[in-house]
């Protein structure tokens, strides 16, 4: 019979993790943490593009997708920030320096950081969604002169749930970066904004005719954010979202992450809104 042609990856098993060691693990908020990894094989390369994710495996417990949240230009630090909510993330949150993890990746599409050069940038994010967007912000700030106005709009549940607090304060001090943070609920001691992230959009300083928007947060939040951006006049071809779906393989084999014709693992997680707009507004896809 006709022989199947060999692809270059033939010899590699894409389901086999590489071994990484926890260099450091620290709490960000009550239920989130960041883990810094280094490869056992020192020559292993973990270059990634902003928006991509890895599959992290905890021995005997399981494997889950987690977005990479560090600086893509810094090849000495591989960072993942996540919430300890499931069996795997809870087990991961208890790891100590020197403990081993399995890692496959990086997988998926990335934020259009290069393509957005010359434009205003609006990053809208909610909750843990700041983690997958942070690499994009690092990349943009590294070449700040290539962009117009840069705005980060971030919504958290309460002031205690705000991620990367120190860094946000540092970013806020940048004269060429607008950082607006809001929380859903707060007591008197909070001096900042209260209200959902979408309410920040209407007064954020960017040119809707020119801006490229990147959104990452819960799907409902992204839907409403999208509507608000469209209302301000941002064209849907310049809006990008990052989707979350169940994933077992990250390479398009397990079928779990399908979103209409898209496989979120390989066609996403970052999508141009145009491509997924209709399905985002359809129930239970």
């Amino acid at each position: 019979m006709a022989r199947l042609t060999n692809s270059p990856r033939f010899a590699l098993d894409p389901m086999l993790p590489q071994r990484f060691v926890v260099e450091r693990l620290w709490r960000e908020t009550a239920d989130t943490f960041t883990v810094k990894l280094e490869p056992v094989d020192k020559t292993a390369d973990f270059a990634f593009a902003p928006g991509q994710f890895n599959m992290l495996y905890v021995f005997g417990v399981g494997e889950i997708p987690i977005s990479i949240s560090g600086d893509p230009a810094d090849n000495t630090a591989l960072l993942h920030t996540t919430r300890a909510v499931g069996t795997v993330t809870k087990a991961m949150s208890r790891l100590k320096p020197g403990d081993m993890l399995g890692l496959r990746g990086p997988f998926g599409s990335n934020w259009p950081v290069l393509e957005a050069g010359g434009h205003d940038i609006v990053l809208v994010t909610g909750g843990i969604g700041l983690a997958p967007l942070r690499p994009a912000l690092y990349a943009i700030l590294a070449q700040r002169e290539k962009y117009g106005k840069v705005v980060l709009l971030y919504g958290a549940r309460t002031p205690e749930d705000i991620l990367y607090k120190k860094e946000l304060a540092r970013w806020r001090a940048h004269f060429d970066l607008e950082v607006h943070v809001t929380v859903d609920r707060a007591t008197e001691s909070w001096r900042g904004n209260v209200g959902v992230a979408t309410t920040l959009i209407r007064r954020a300083p960017f040119d809707p005719q020119d801006a490229v928007a990147m959104i990452c947060g819960p799907e409902v939040m992204m839907r409403f954010t999208t509507q608000e951006l469209l209302r301000r006049g941002v064209d849907s071809s310049r809006i990008f979202v990052s989707l979350e779906r169940n994933m077992k393989c990250a390479i398009g084999f397990c079928g779990h992450c399908q979103f209409g014709p898209q496989f979120v693992c390989k066609d996403g997680p970052v999508f141009a809104l145009k491509r997924v707009e209709k399905l985002l507004n359809t129930w239970e896809v």
């Binding site: 209200g195 959902v196 979408t198 939040m221």
Partner: peptide, 19 residues
């Protein structure tokens, strides 16, 4: 309407813990 919609979103407790 804008306030009502924002309030509805707040009610969803989007970033809350489900478990």
């Amino acid at each position: 309407i804008a306030r009502l919609q924002a309030t509805r979103l707040q009610l969803l407790d989007l970033y809350g813990t489900a478990d």
